[in-house]
């Protein structure tokens, strides 16, 4: 499966490029392993589905052409035919087989993508606000708004929450999205193969200026990343509580950078409701919620 599954996206890509919009079809040009896995599954599913569609359309066309109510139509007319046992059972079995072809890799990939393939991935705490993205780097102690810098060639774990209505955190060229929800911290890992520049956006409508939820993503070499963080720590201003409250307001802003940030701005417990009474701790320290 591996080898041919790799060739089909290439063929598709070629078609897309020929069509003239290939460079924009970000989903078909994944720049990281997550997006690649997802694309492979998409291609597999579309090929399987294309077979079904083609079969149905050919069958329907033949039926329509052959059995028109026209004078002199010699095709058989059998008004009393009620069905065909074997065919009817086949209708159930064949789609089930085709779906199995999609289902097996779906299960495998779903479980595979749920694990970060690294012991200590770089962690970025993502908070969606009205209408801006706040990125905090707990390891580097720096924070940015609306622009994200990540090291290329290694998995990055995003921990995503929201201090405003829901959004989804999405960098289409690196891989799929995950919701940013208040009161919950959801994980998502992505990786960029090589240094590069991408864009991200939100997929969940969040109010008037939702369209401004674009953010830029820059993947750089790990060395460049370290020096970027170090540079930020030296030159950028620190984020104060007042700064955070300004970010909470219903505004849009450009790119911002901070050399540190108050710890309470991201919830400390990363999982929610469990049966055993593991209660979710509210963001008690957060004045916005009192």
């Amino acid at each position: 499966m591996r080898t041919w599954a790799k060739r089909i996206p290439l063929a598709l890509l070629l078609m897309a490029v020929l069509a003239g919009c290939g460079q924009h079809a970000v989903m078909l040009n994944p720049a990281g392993p997550v997006g690649r896995t997802e694309l492979n599954l998409m291609v597999l599913a579309s090929v399987a589905m294309a077979i079904v569609i083609l079969f149905v359309l050919v069958l329907a066309t033949v039926a329509v052409v052959r059995f028109r109510d026209k004078k002199g139509n010699r095709a058989p007319y059998t008004p009393q035919v009620e069905g065909h046992k074997v065919l009817e059972v086949l209708w159930f079995i064949i789609p089930a087989l085709i779906l199995t072809v999609i289902a097996v890799p779906t299960v495998k990939d779903t479980f595979a993508l749920a694990k970060v393939p690294a012991k200590n991935p770089l962690v970025v705490d993502v908070t969606s606000l009205d209408w801006k993205w706040l990125f905090e780097y707990p390891g580097q102690k720096v924070a940015t708004v609306n622009h994200l810098v990540i090291p290329a060639g290694q998995p990055v774990l995003f921990k995503i929450t929201s201090d405003a209505p829901m959004n989804t955190f999405w960098i289409p060229q690196l891989g799929g999205m995950e919701y940013a929800m208040p009161g919950r911290v959801l994980p998502l890992w992505l990786e960029s193969y090589k240094p590069g520049v991408y864009w991200g956006h939100s997929g969940q409508f969040s109010g008037r200026e939702f369209e401004k939820m674009f953010f830029s993503v820059r993947a750089v070499t790990p060395a460049a990343f370290s020096s970027w963080a170090a540079h930020l720590r030296k030159t950028a201003p620190p984020m104060t509580v007042a700064d955070y409250h300004r970010l909470l307001q219903f505004t849009t802003v450009g790119h911002l950078s901070y050399s540190k940030y108050p710890a309470f701005t991201f919830p400390s417990v990363t999982h929610g409701f469990t049966l055993k009474g593991g209660m979710y701790l509210l963001m008690h320290n957060n004045p916005a919620h009192d």
Partner: peptide
């Protein structure tokens, strides 16, 4: 559906 912990270990 809603008793989940972090999906990533």
């Amino acid at each position: 559906i809603m008793m989940f912990k972090s999906g990533v270990s």
